[in-house]
């Protein structure tokens, strides 16, 4: 899965779980702008629904600590699918 496919998929999931459309979501903006912290556990489950290889528990906890921006989430998923 290449970076464009992951980017489209992640932004689609964020749009499905927020008030924002795909066109309104920017990669460089903080994830908090689109998803509140109360909905991050839900977001992790939804990302898992779209990307089966993602480990939900790891993603959930990183959403609260290291994943700050939309592009961080994209990178997290991309690395899962492109681990050596």
């Amino acid at each position: 899965m290449n970076l464009n496919q992951v980017t489209d998929g992640v932004i689609e999931v964020i749009a499905m779980n927020s008030r924002f459309t795909k066109d309104e979501i920017e990669q460089n903006k903080p994830l908090d702008k689109y998803i509140s912290s109360d909905m991050k556990a839900r977001l992790a489950r939804e990302v898992k629904g779209k990307f089966q290889k993602v480990k939900t528990i790891k993603l959930t906890n990183e959403l609260f600590v290291t994943i700050k921006k939309v592009k961080d989430l994209i990178q997290h998923v991309y690395q899962v699918y492109n681990e050596v």
């Binding site: 509140s36 912290s37 109360d38 909905m39 991050k40 556990a41 839900r42 992790a44 489950r45 939804e46 898992k48 629904g49 939900t56 528990i57 959930t60 906890n61 609260f64």
Partner: peptide
């Protein structure tokens, strides 16, 4: 919604 989870699965 907040904090650390032991399990969170779909």
């Amino acid at each position: 919604g907040n904090g650390y989870f032991f399990v969170n699965e779909r």
